[in-house]
Design a protein around this nucleic acid. Structure first.
Lengths: 228, 228
DNA sequence: CGATGTATTGATGTGGATCAAAATAAGTGG
DNA sequence: CCACTTATTTTGATCCACATCAATACATCG
């Protein structure tokens, strides 16, 4: 009765497990509990006690946080193989941001004890976590850049291309994304209205096709070019 | 001829060396080369090949990066004990941001080989690096928050209090900071003019005292309160 | 069919950037 | 000590990208 027989978790490409031998991966995965999670489930909560680490196996999730005035800021989408909640691995008492499921899926969960044992036994995991952390820092540097010296149009365009790369589906007409205006607005830090106007402009110029809760990107990028 | 006899590097409180026994710290430090560095020296350059890791022993440094349109964005001040350039530790080919000295000081430098050996021998270093990385992520989350939903006044006030905590000197009149308007502007992401106007307002209300290249914070914080 | 969430469109407002010009301060060399 | 240069700061006038507000239209579903 191997793990592989029940779910194909060992097949997932994960940066976190990179450099481990197959039997080591098995050992790491064996220490986790598997759990189905539904859309909108919040796995980690910003400021909440960090007592678990997670790996997304199936489905989609994303990081977000809530501002003091109650707005929701979407940071980053997660795909299978990504880990989150590793505040625990870093010895941090509480989670930095919240993570929620955006489609039904499957996650692996390690508790405090498992994390301690694993990181002691496989230093490679620490190395991989550090490497992932540095990827996030890179993401943040570019987000910082975008916030400080890109226009609203540029930020929305960027979010669209990023989202297309992570959660886009290829369809005959282009790349299809399941996102609402509100989500785009939240990720690009603009208002609903600005997103609506920008998308309308792009649709008029044939760059995108809109429908409720969905956008199809035709050519990936003549989103810029300043005319309306 | 111990390291300690030449410079008191082992006395520096460093999160990076936390949890190591004294003789282990010695071993880690022994693998580094010590170097005096002058003000304005750029230690790591954004996008440049990451072939060294550093620890600041004496003096002040800071992270910054240059935007495509040539503006300089100041991110974070460094104090003795802080490490930087650990893109290397994370296996990242190039530095994420630049780091420059802002006062003369002293740094420890590890080359690629030393870093590889040390991280293999002392997994605790990886753990500490991960912990430091998560501190930076926390900083970035709050910076993101500030950029998206704080006013110019709030951001400048925040920068002032942060800077006061890291590079402030206590003087009878309050806390003295060596910063120019331009530096504050760059860190708070506002223009020189806005900084000037805000500081003037605060000085009129007796919260700060200004002189060229220097600010004295009297009471740490009635910087807010919306009136001019 | 109404009910509810999502998207559009126009009118108006505003925080802070941008531009222009001058004042102040600190250094430099005669 | 003064004339001269260069860096830093100030103050006012103007402008604009985008938020905000208000009203309406469209989709989807039970």
């Amino acid at each position: 009765m191997t793990i592989r027989s029940s779910v194909p978790t060992a097949d997932v490409e994960s940066l976190f497990l990179k450099g481990l031998a197959p039997h080591e991966r098995q050992a790491v995965i064996a220490k986790a509990t598997r759990r189905r999670v539904l859309t909108n489930t919040v796995m980690s909560r910003q400021g909440g006690p960090s007592d678990r680490a997670f790996m997304l196996v199936k489905g989609r999730a994303r990081f977000f946080f809530i501002t003091p005035d109650g707005r929701k800021i979407i940071l980053h989408w997660l795909v299978p193989g990504d880990i989150f909640g590793w505040a625990l691995l870093a010895g941090r008492p509480s989670y930095l941001v919240s993570a929620e499921m955006v489609h039904d899926g499957l996650v692996l969960t390690w508790d405090r004890i498992a994390v301690r044992e694993l990181s002691a036994q496989y230093p490679m995991l620490l190395h991989n976590a550090l490497s992932i952390a540095s990827d996030y820092l890179a993401w943040y540097v570019s987000a910082h850049l975008a916030l400080t010296c890109h226009t609203a149009r540029e930020r929305v365009a960027n979010v669209l291309t990023n989202v297309a790369q992570t959660i886009g589906r290829k369809v005959p007409a282009g790349v299809e994304l399941d996102v609402t205006n509100e989500e785009l607005a939240s990720a690009a830090n603009v208002t609903l209205f600005t997103v609506s106007r920008l998308l309308s402009g792009w649709q008029r110029r044939g760059v995108v096709v809109k429908s409720r809760g969905r956008v199809v990107l035709r050519s990936t990028m003549q989103l810029l070019s300043s005319e309306d």
